[in-house]
């Protein structure tokens, strides 16, 4: 068994740092799997409509959503930087700002879905509506996740056990912001 002698051994598979690594690894896999539909939709957009952009698309609202999303993503990133301080009320504020900005973006995305000017039986229109709808769905899920993080922070407070998972709700939101921005470039500009 000489080959095994110098192999690294895990001391105890329930130690906090290993639990943290497990959470981190699991979260990475989760985000990877959530990115797959986005990749499929990007492909679909070019398969169906090449790089055509309809002149009826509401460019102003699209740009505004992107700005709001960028703002919410920045706040989320700021919050992530400060999670380690475990300042309950400060973090709560970050949660609220991210969620309010996120909710505004989600409502605007739903507005785009409802009052669109594009033709839904055209190939640009169908991909536009599908992608906008899917992203609105992602935003709603992200907002629920943020709310769960906010509640845990407020009711229980941060500890070694939940610090990563509460912080990861911000990470998940940042993932959604990036997904929106990619889709914004994809749908509205190129």
């Amino acid at each position: 068994m000489s080959e095994m002698q110098n192999a690294p051994t895990l001391q105890n598979n329930d130690l906090p740092d290993l639990k943290l690594r497990a959470s981190r690894g699991g979260f990475t896999l989760l985000v990877a799997s959530q990115a797959v539909p986005i990749i499929v939709l990007i492909n679909l957009r070019y398969v169906m409509a090449a790089s055509y952009v309809s002149s009826h698309v509401d460019q102003l609202t699209g740009a505004l959503i992107s700005l709001v999303m960028i703002a919410s993503g920045l706040v989320a990133w700021l919050a992530l930087m400060n999670v380690k301080q475990r300042n309950r009320s400060q973090l709560n504020r970050y949660f609220w700002i991210t969620m309010v900005l996120g909710a505004i973006a989600a409502v605007m995305a739903l507005y785009q879905l409802w009052f669109h000017g594009v033709n839904s039986v055209g190939h640009y229109g169908e991909t536009y509506l599908t992608i906008t709808g899917v992203l609105a769905g992602y935003m709603v899920i992200g907002l629920v996740a943020l709310y769960s993080g906010k509640s845990r922070n407020w009711r229980v407070g941060l500890n070694d056990d939940n610090e990563f998972s509460v912080g990861s709700t911000f990470k998940y939101w940042i993932f959604i912001v990036l997904a929106w921005l990619i889709m914004y470039l994809d749908l509205y500009l190129f």
Binding site: P8, T9, L10, N13, K19
Partner: peptide, 8 residues
């Protein structure tokens, strides 16, 4: 992440 010690 949950392998026992020595389970390389």
């Amino acid at each position: 992440f949950k392998r026992a010690p020595g389970l390389t």
